[in-house]
Amino acid sequence: MLIYQCEKCQQQYAKVVSVCAKCLCLKLKETEVADDGKLVTWTTIRRAPAGFSVTAPYDVVVVDLICGLRVTGRLAQESIPPRMYARVKRIATEEGSPIFSVMT
């Protein structure tokens, strides 16, 4: 999974930022980290936001990646059902959202 890392203090960010909030360094580089993580909570959205491209219902998940970042994403429609603290893996990115699948 592509993240952004401060060249000075190594602080990591899930999305592109113009400055490191930790040390104010302006240099951040793209970094590949492992797609694996732990599902820390989830909800099934039954009423999608207006204009959202995915038809409800769908599961929004919060995942703690192995690198330490906590990210918000969506569960793949074909994934097995979510459960607390399940191992998950990012299998795609759709319109800026990581898409995860629960590991068996």
């Binding site: 899930a14 999305k15 820390v40 909570t41 989830w42 909800t43 099934t44 959205i45 009423r47 999608a48 936001p49 959202f52 995915v54 409800a56 769908y58 929004v60 998940v61 919060v62 990210v71 918000t72 994403g73 969506r74 607390m84 319109e95 800026g96 959202s97």
Partner: peptide, 21 residues
């Protein structure tokens, strides 16, 4: 809407996440 919005999260959804935790 950079970090949470693309997932399709809503405000009720935010509190659904919190409830499960």
């Amino acid at each position: 809407n950079e970090n949470d919005g693309p997932s399709g999260l809503t405000f009720p959804g935010l509190f659904g996440l919190a409830w499960r935790s």
